[in-house]
Amino acid sequence: MHVVLSISAKRLALGLATLLAISLIVFFSVELLPGDLAEAVLGQGATPEAVAALRHELGLDRPAAVRYMAWVLDLLHGDLGRSLATGRSVAELVADRLGNTVVLALAAAAIAMPLGVGLGILSTVYRGRAFDRVASTASLAGISFPEFFTAYMLVAIFSVKLGWLPAVALVGTGESWLQRLVVLTLPALTLALAVVAYVLRMTRAAIVGVMAAPYIEMAQLKGISPVSIVIRHALPNALSPIINVVILNLAYLVVGVVVVEVVFVYPGLGQLLVDSVSKRDIPVVQACCIIFAATYVLLNLLADVLSVLSNPRLKRPRQQV
């Protein structure tokens, strides 16, 4: 067991290092600004006094290293600073939106993951036949389409032509769960379509990669049936790449929500990020980036650890007979 532990510990250390590096990048990239944040906020015409005052207010007159430490400490306490645009607490701003984004991503994942893995396995069982070819072409299209294309196609069909579902996904606080579900359908479907395509292709590739191994030929020569070969002989060896695929696509979903939220005007974190970038509301951008990146890093870490756990070679290191 110690091998698994030590590898997991290494991955964990790397994950934490990545998080640290990301916080450094997020914080210090602001230093790249011509002039500094205060000048950027107040613009060209500001008086030096005003700039100095804002600089003091923002704490910019302290050394960068001190400010970074303070920023990280605040971050760990859940204090994300104040929005430059509205003056509101970033934490409040983010908290509302984060819940919406998580609900959307989970809804999409619940549709996409089982469907993608299942279709991927079916594709290998029937590889080379009609089902596989249709799945292959459809999924190629699925990964080639930009999300906004899929989104507008769905809107054109379900909202404009059929009028079944709303084209925008405005959610307030007072709706019932059913209303929320109706509103969520199109955004979740858009995300799910892309993810199903990715998961299908990667699952298929993982199993087909294993199917070229000599032990699969051996299984064929033992007279094992094709379905049993895929399920009992190939799948256990493809498990670790498939787990990886699923989690990496979860990570992708978290980022993919940005575009879908914009299309459907869904009040999530992605929408907030895009708005803040165009307003150059740096504290909000920093907070959103940290949240997205941390989720992404943690999911990647989870994928790494799970794929270690599903490898029998690592579970039982070689012992001499």
Binding site: G15, T18, A21, I22, I25, V26, S29, A251, V254, V255, V258, L273, V274, V277, V285, Q286, C288, C289, F292, A293, Y296, V297, N300
Partner: peptide, 10 residues
């Protein structure tokens, strides 16, 4: 380790 879109937006 940093999602591409987020990095670019930042």
């Amino acid at each position: 380790g940093f999602p591409t879109l987020i990095f670019a937006l930042m």
